[in-house]
C-alpha cells in the first residue's frame, strides 16, 4: 500500500500524466476515431494498453536523460517541479500557444537547479534543446519518405479503392498502437521522470517477482496516462480534434506513423545501443513533443504535395512556445520551491 503522503506528492506528476493522455491520444487515434473507423471505446482500450506497455518496457531511456539534467532527490521538490510544469502547460494552453509538456518539465527542472544552486549539465541541456528542433524536422523528413514509398507501392500494386481503404483502416489501428507505445515510452519521463531519483516507493514483492520503485513509478505514470485517455480523450478527439482532422486519410495515416517513429527513435535504448555498437552517432533519448512531431509530419506532407503556403504564424507560435514555456515553468518552479521551503518548511533539495 502506497503511503498517502507519497501519493499526494506524486499527484502533480500523475495529473501531468492524465493531461497528457487526455490531449495526446488525439494525435494517435484522432483520425481513426474521428472517421468512425474505430469506436472510441476500442481506441481507448488499445491506446491505454500500449501506453502502459511503452512506459513500463521502454520508458527508462528518456527518464535517465531528465535525471541527468537535474537529479531531484527530495520528494517535495519533485512534486513542485511536476506541478509547475503542469501549471505552465495549463496557462500556455489558455493563451493559445502550442505548448509541450516536455518543454515545460525541462524548464521546471532548470528552475529547481537554480533554486538548489546546482549546476545544469549543459551538454545534456544542449542535447535536449537540439531535439526540439530536430523532432519536427525529422518527422517531416520521415513523412515525406513514407508518403513517397506508399505512393510508389500504391501504383505498383494497383489496389482497388475499396481494398486500399480496408488496408488503410487496419494500418491506422496498427499505427495507433505503435503511436501509443511510443507515446508511453517517450513521454513517461515527463510524468514521473522527476520522481525517480527520490525513489519514493518501497520495493514491492509479489511471489517471486519484485518491482523496484522506478518500475512502480512507470506503471503508475502509465496508468495515469491511460486514465487521461479513458476519461477525457473522447472530448478532445471529437470536439477539439487535432491537426490531423483536416487531412486526407492517407496523409493522416502517414502523419500518425511518422509521429510514432519519431517518438520511438527518441525513446529506444535498443536502437541507441545498436548505433553505438557500430560506432554510429546515437539518437538522444529525450522526451519530445507529440503534437510538434505531428505538425512537423503535416508540414512535410504539405511540402511534398506542393502546398507552399506554410503557416508562418503557426511556426512562429511553436518557436515562441520553445522559449516561453521553459522560462515560464522555470520561474514558476523557482517561486513554488521558495514557498514550499519557507512557508511549509519542506525540504525541497
Amino acid at each position: 500500500m502506497i503511503d498517502p503522503i507519497i501519493l499526494l506528492f506524486l499527484s502533480s506528476g500523475l495529473f501531468l500524466g492524465w493531461a497528457l493522455g487526455a490531449n495526446d491520444a488525439a494525435n494517435v487515434f484522432g483520425t481513426a476515431v474521428g472517421t468512425r473507423m474505430v469506436s472510441w471505446r476500442n481506441a481507448a482500450i488499445i491506446c491505454s494498453i500500449f501506453v502502459i506497455l511503452g512506459a513500463v518496457i521502454s520508458g527508462a531511456g528518456t527518464s535517465q536523460t531528465l535525471g541527468k539534467l537535474g537529479a531531484i532527490t527530495a520528494l517535495p521538490g519533485a512534486f513542485m517541479t511536476a506541478l509547475s510544469a503542469g501549471f505552465s502547460v495549463f496557462v500556455m494552453t489558455k493563451s493559445g500557444l502550442p505548448v509541450s509538456t516536455s518543454q515545460a518539465i525541462v524548464g521546471a527542472i532548470i528552475g529547481w537547479n537554480f533554486f538548489s544552486t546546482q549546476a545544469t549539465d549543459t551538454s545534456t541541456l544542449a542535447k535536449i534543446l537540439s531535439t526540439w528542433i530536430i523532432c519536427p524536422l525529422l518527422a517531416a523528413v520521415i513523412a515525406i519518405v513514407i508518403l513517397k514509398i506508399s505512393k510508389y507501392f500504391g501504383r505498383k500494386m494497383n489496389l482497388s479503392l475499396i481494398r486500399l481503404d480496408a488496408y488503410k483502416r487496419i494500418a491506422l489501428i496498427f499505427a495507433g498502437a505503435l503511436g501509443a507505445y511510443s507515446l508511453g515510452a517517450n513521454n513517461i519521463a515527463n510524468v514521473i521522470g522527476v520522481f525517480i531519483p527520490a525513489q519514493p516507493l518501497a520495493e514491492l514483492k509479489i511471489g517471486s517477482f519484485s518491482f523496484s520503485s522506478t518500475q512502480q513509478l512507470f506503471l503508475l505514470g502509465g496508468l495515469a496516462i491511460a486514465l487521461g485517455v479513458c476519461t477525457y480523450s473522447k472530448k478532445v478527439m471529437l470536439t477539439v480534434g487535432s491537426d490531423l482532422g483536416q487531412l486526407s486519410s492517407t496523409s493522416a495515416l502517414v502523419a500518425v506513423i511518422s509521429h510514432s517513429i519519431v517518438l520511438f527513435l527518441f525513446a529506444s535504448q535498443g536502437l541507441e545501443a545498436l548505433l553505438s555498437r557500430y560506432g554510429l552517432p546515437t539518437i538522444p533519448l529525450v522526451p519530445v513533443s507529440s503534437s510538434q512531431a505531428v505538425v512537423g509530419a503535416i508540414v512535410g506532407i504539405s511540402i511534398l504535395q506542393g502546398i507552399t503556403a506554410v503557416k508562418w504564424n503557426v511556426l512562429g507560435k511553436i518557436i515562441v512556445g520553445w522559449i516561453v514555456t521553459p522560462i515560464f515553468a522555470g520561474i514558476v518552479c523557482f517561486i513554488g520551491l521558495f514557498f514550499l521551503q519557507n512557508v511549509f518548511s519542506l525540504s525541497v533539495i
Partner: peptide, 11 residues
C-alpha cells in the same frame, strides 16, 4: 462500416 468518409462521399 466500410470506407473512410473522404472516399465514401465520392463513391
Amino acid at each position: 462500416n466500410i470506407l473512410i468518409p473522404d472516399s465514401r462521399g465520392d463513391v
